[in-house]
Design a protein around this nucleic acid. Structure first.
Ligand code: FES
Ligand code: FES
Lengths: 133, 133
DNA sequence: TAAAATGATACTATAATGGTATCATTCTGT
DNA sequence: ACAGAATGATACCATTATAGTATCATTTTA
């Protein structure tokens, strides 16, 4: 069980790379060369990041991407949201129709606590933070 | 992204039910009737719980299962371990061969912190605890 | 001895993840 | 003008994990 999936992971690497390269444009080609990521996959990821407003893109020859958000404001939790959906570790699995007891079920309560801790922690993890390490 | 999967979830429900029914034996038939779980699936789960030493089983007509461990010692984290493998949210996804930087990578460090918090919390969640709620 | 239970094991279906592949469009340098 | 290098949009495919089913053998009791 992994907290982040590959697209999220690759997105982070790409964003850190771009933050370091700023204000230069970074192309998919650059990322493939320097980070060794599979080209079509990282292309798709970049397009999703652009659509979501995290990247500014310039088309055509010598084009590429730039961060559209300051590294301090680029939170891991938002990337997870984009690529994996909302962080919710405590959904009831018993029935599709949500259990009447969801609010009181002690198991869900505990799982929700863990979820809350995780999200709180993730709020502090930004691209800027990860660059320091 | 869910912290626990269905087999873990069903296992917990079954164990709570058994704890409540003790010292009576509980059969798969009972669980299907009272908890509405799919029969072949819960059967498999019960067999895994028995193999792992969480249940004591009696074969033959009027047979069934009993807890082999006190409810206070039956921890959710151990069930997760059994059905989902070790809780490890921060494995490096970049390469199969573990990154040289795993120990210093700031991203892994943060994910491992979250993992540690989650595990610590899960240690306190036992079948006995869940019965109170 | 039939019925009801578990033990063991193999198989299947669905969904999520992790990608590829293609074509259209845009921009730049020559 | 135009070739080449880049992104945009979209459809498709492969692998893995999850969530189950199905079957037959064995044990026990009424
Ligand atoms: S059984 Fe649905 S929330 Fe507890
Ligand atoms: S890149 Fe492998 S641990 Fe950070």
């Amino acid at each position: 069980m992994n907290l982040i999936t590959r697209n999220t992971d690759y997105a982070i690497r790409a964003l850190i790379y771009m933050a370091g390269a700023a204000p230069e444009l970074v192309s998919a080609t650059d990322l493939v060369r320097d980070l060794g990521l599979p080209r079509p996959f990282i292309r798709k990821i970049l397009q999703e990041l652009q659509k979501a407003g995290f990247l500014y893109s310039i088309k055509g020859k010598n084009g590429g991407f730039q961060l559209a958000v300051a590294p301090e404001k680029l939170r891991l939790v938002d990337l997870i949201l984009l690529f994996q959906g909302p962080v919710s570790m405590g959904d009831c699995l018993l029935r599709k129709k949500i259990c009447a007891c969801t609010q009181t079920c002690p198991l869900r309560l505990e799982l929700k606590k863990i979820e809350a801790m995780a999200v709180a922690h993730l709020q502090n993890v930004t691209v800027a933070f990860l660059m320091k390490g």
